[in-house]
Nucleic acid binder design. Structure first.
Length: 589
RNA sequence: GGGCGCGUAGAACAGUCUGGAGUGUUCGCCGGCCUGUCAAGCCGGAGGUCGCGGGUUCAAAUCCCGUCGUGCCCGCCA
């Protein structure tokens, strides 16, 4: 460690071994407890907390000390008097008997307490993020992030990976998420885009013979915020040549295990559980299932073939399905039923059927009278339902039915912490999906290889891709795929996507040409480091593991970004404001 | 673009449903007392555009409309 001239010890490192020695610590006043003839100061620095004892009569400066003053204190380390040890504190057996107390820098009255116990409005925390980051929880999150990236680099270095930086001023592609744009001054009127991912550059690196590449890459997507989404975020991006899916899985499992071990001290069971996309949808109604609890979706269609109940009947007759979940013991009321029905409707259902199993085995349900004894017995049996269990049933086309139940399953069963970890691979995603306007779009990205090229040509809507997601506790960590390395296949995919060959050449010609020079088969993966650290630190939002995040409206409350810029800057860039934007600017200034 | 919630002292809240004087709690802040605390304790004090604008009313923190900010979600996120 580098020697420091200002202090001899970190506050948290003072121990019984130092008793009798003169030490100097420097840090912040966490708390002052003044008893008149004797005063206690808790001094906090990055290493921890130590108690200082001072006689205010001898140290007038102690009278002036307030919370978060930055101070330097010298004194002798002593054992605490018997009975006054603090077992909660790592340094609680000792204290520093102050000889010298020096204020390095005073602090104003604080906008909020530097304390994990108080729950402060996030806007106020962000406005004074430098104070918020002094809180032990936030300091621990910063540290966890740093250790996570260190573990990633260590692991990948051992595996022979090369860390390569790719540009962040690149060309815009209209597919996928909205690009963050940066106007060019030297070519006024033209724009760079910030990368949504280093996708094409890492594929170029495979063509370049790098073979094993990784990057801890800042990525940008100009879409609306969520608890787990910011405009900019950090991904571990990696790619390997001559790789098949198993090589990708093995590498990512190694990396994720090393991070979990670093932050949690736990071993992760590998290989991870695997589900195909279809299986995930069928059993959990979502492509990122939280595997920490059961409540799996059950297919009831076969047991209701002759049902009298119109909703079920018409669903089955129109090639739909009837599915249910056993939600187990729930506080059940009419209000709760209405609430969940509303939620089901929000997820696309036309309604929701609920049933509660009575102690005598009969069903309490608005539709009980439409069901035969046989049907009731079959439903109870296949759903493994006992007295008191709440059963929720949806009848619709397959995708809607499972998605509705998947949403309710998460609502009803998902743990509200991340104490337990459940990793999962979801494989065999559809290659394409139908867009809102009925056109075909890719479900991963257009550089993902199909499992079966002939099938892709004949029945694109049924084609399976070599794409896969990593999921942790119902959080999508990231995704990857085996890429297309054959330029002809790449051209065919563009064609199926409705990108005519002229457009494809204009936009991706440079990439298609690169593929023509002996491209090795390759594949890779990228996962969100923010999300991973969020889960491992048991946080509900990635903002808690990002030092300076933005609010839902894209504003940084600390610096005020984004801001208006001088008209001269704009004209140099060949950029103008719309009348609406100008009006807003005038109102602002 | 849409749905729902929140906005009261420096901070966290109660009060809003059922209109009646800015009414209260905890922490912080200021002053005083206090020699073993560790979320110290005791006494006293200061501190308010009830987010903002409009409306209803004799009377609005409270009811209505709008607006801004913020959070969760849907859409969106290759």
């Amino acid at each position: 460690m580098v020697q420091q001239v200002m202090r001899t010890h970190g506050a948290g490192s003072v121990s019984v071994d130092d008793v009798g020695n003169e030490v100097t610590v420097a840090g912040w006043v966490q708390k002052r407890r003044d008893h008149g003839g004797i005063a206690f100061l808790d001094i906090r620095d990055a290493s921890g907390l130590v108690q200082v004892v001072a006689d205010p009569a001898q140290h007038p400066a102690v009278d002036d000390l307030r919370m978060e003053f930055c101070v330097r204190i010298s004194g002798e380390v002593t054992n605490r008097p018997e009975g006054t040890e603090n077992t909660e504190l790592p340094t609680g057996l000792v204290e520093i008997d102050a000889r010298e107390v020096e204020v390095l820098s005073p602090a104003k009255a604080l906008p909020f307490m530097i304390d994990d116990r108080t729950d402060v409005d996030e806007l106020i925390r962000l406005r004074h993020r430098y104070l918020d980051l002094r809180r032990p929880r936030m300091a621990a999150n910063l540290k966890a992030r740093s250790r996570a990236t260190a573990a990633i680099r260590r692991t990948l270095d051992q595996e022979g990976f090369l860390e390569v930086e790719t540009p962040t001023l690149i060309n815009s592609t209209p597919e996928g998420a909205r690009d963050m744009l940066v106007p060019s001054r030297l070519r006024s009127g033209e724009f760079y885009a910030l990368p949504q991912s280093p996708q094409l550059f890492k594929q170029l690196l495979m063509i370049s013979g790098v073979e094993r590449y990784f990057q801890i890459a800042r990525c940008y997507r100009d879409e609306d915020f969520r608890a787990d989404r910011q405009l900019e975020f950090t991904q571990l991006d990696l790619e390997g040549a001559f790789w098949d899916r198993e090589a990708v899985f093995e590498t990512i499992e190694k990396v994720l295990s090393s991070v979990v071990e670093e932050l949690r001290g736990e071993r992760v069971e590998t290989p991870f559980v695997r589900l195909t996309w279809h299986e995930a949808m069928n059993r959990f109604g979502i492509d990122k299932p939280d595997m920490r609890f059961g409540m799996e979706i059950v297919d009831l269609t076969d047991y209701l073939g002759d049902t009298e109940f119109g909703v079920f009947k018409s669903a089955i007759e129109s090639a739909g399905t009837v599915r249910g979940i056993n939600a187990g013991q729930q506080d059940w009321s009419r209000a709760r039923a209405d609430e969940l029905t509303e939620q089901a409707k929000g997820l696309g259902a036309k309604g929701l059927v609920w049933m509660v199993v009575n102690d005598d085995g009969t069903l309490r349900s608005p539709i009980a009278k439409f069901l035969s004894d046989n049907e009731i017995e079959s439903i109870k049996k296949v759903m493994d339902a006992g007295p008191g269990d709440v059963l929720l049933v949806a009848a619709d086309r397959w995708k809607t039915a499972v998605e509705v139940l998947g949403g309710l399953r998460n609502e009803l069963g998902r743990p509200d912490n991340h104490d337990e970890l459940a990793f999962l691979w979801v494989t065999d995603f559809p290659l394409f999906e139908e867009a809102e306007d009925g056109s075909i779009t890719f479900s991963h990205h257009p550089f993902t290889s199909p499992v079966d090229i002939d099938e892709m040509r004949v029945r694109p809507e049924a084609a399976i891709s070599n794409a896969y997601d990593a999921v942790l506790n119902g959080v999508e960590l990231g995704s990857g795929s085996i890429r297309i390395h054959d330029p002809d296949v790449q051209r065919q995919v563009f064609e199926i996507l409705g990108i005519d060959s002229e457009t494809a050449e204009r936009r991706f010609g440079w990439f298609l040409e690169a593929l023509e020079y002996g491209t090795p088969p390759h594949g890779g993966f990228a996962f969100g480091i923010d999300r991973l650290v969020m889960v491992l630190q048991n946080e509900a939002s990635i903002r808690e593991v990002i030092p300076f995040p933005k609010t839902q409206s894209g504003v940084d409350p600390l610096t005020g970004a984004p801001t208006w810029v001088e008209a001269g800057q704009l004209s140099e860039l060949g950029v103008g404001l719309t009348p609406e934007a100008k009006a807003r600017q005038t109102a602002d200034e």
